[in-house]
């Protein structure tokens, strides 16, 4: 497997073509730009996007989804802020890093502790929806307390991130 080193990587597809295409869920309640950001991150996690790939041109996204170009720019800026993407003047926006993956052993440990917590919640009488409600509320509080740093810390690029 190649270890991706950043923007010096040559694009692996024809110029101007992006491997992914965006879709929009108007009823989800999630702001549009966030949906785009999440779709990029999702594609990165699943391997549809590799560093060096180009993100869809603003013009094409706008033509396909009929959304405000400022929204697309905002999403791309958000990704740049997270270090996941970088703009090349005159060419477009390109992926320059991949998401950090937590190592498998750690993931296993987290899964086990989560199972335990769920068992406790079940004993306390919380049903599935109750679990989701509680978890969502605490999740928000947690990241709020971290001062919004949470979203930014995941970019790795040079050191971690074996695909």
């Amino acid at each position: 497997m190649d270890i991706d080193k950043g923007i010096s990587e040559e694009p692996r597809r024809a110029a101007g073509v992006s491997p992914i295409d965006f879709r929009l869920d108007p009823a989800s309640g999630v702001p549009t730009y966030l949906q785009l950001v999440h779709q990029v991150e999702h594609a990165l996690r699943l391997g549809y996007l590799q560093p060096g790939d180009q993100l869809p041109k603003v013009r094409d996204v706008v033509a396909a989804l009929a959304i405000n170009p400022n929204t697309v720019l905002k999403a791309y800026k958000d990704l740049e802020g997270k270090g996941l993407a970088a703009g090349r003047p005159g060419q477009g926006t390109f992926i320059q890093a991949t998401l950090s993956q937590v190592a498998l052993p750690e993931l296993g440990g987290l899964r086990r502790s989560l199972f335990g917590w769920l068992a406790d919640a079940d004993t306390a009488g919380l049903d599935e929806d109750g679990v989701v409600a509680l978890f969502t509320s605490v999740l928000r509080d947690f990241y709020k307390r971290r001062g919004g740093q949470a979203d930014r810390g995941v970019a790795s690029g040079e050191t971690e991130g074996v695909a």
Binding site: V58, R59, V62, A63, A64, L65, A66, I67, N68, P69
Partner: peptide
Amino acid sequence: RHDFMASVMMAMAA
């Protein structure tokens, strides 16, 4: 409606 809005947004982008 979608096509109409897409055209307007493309003009804005371009």
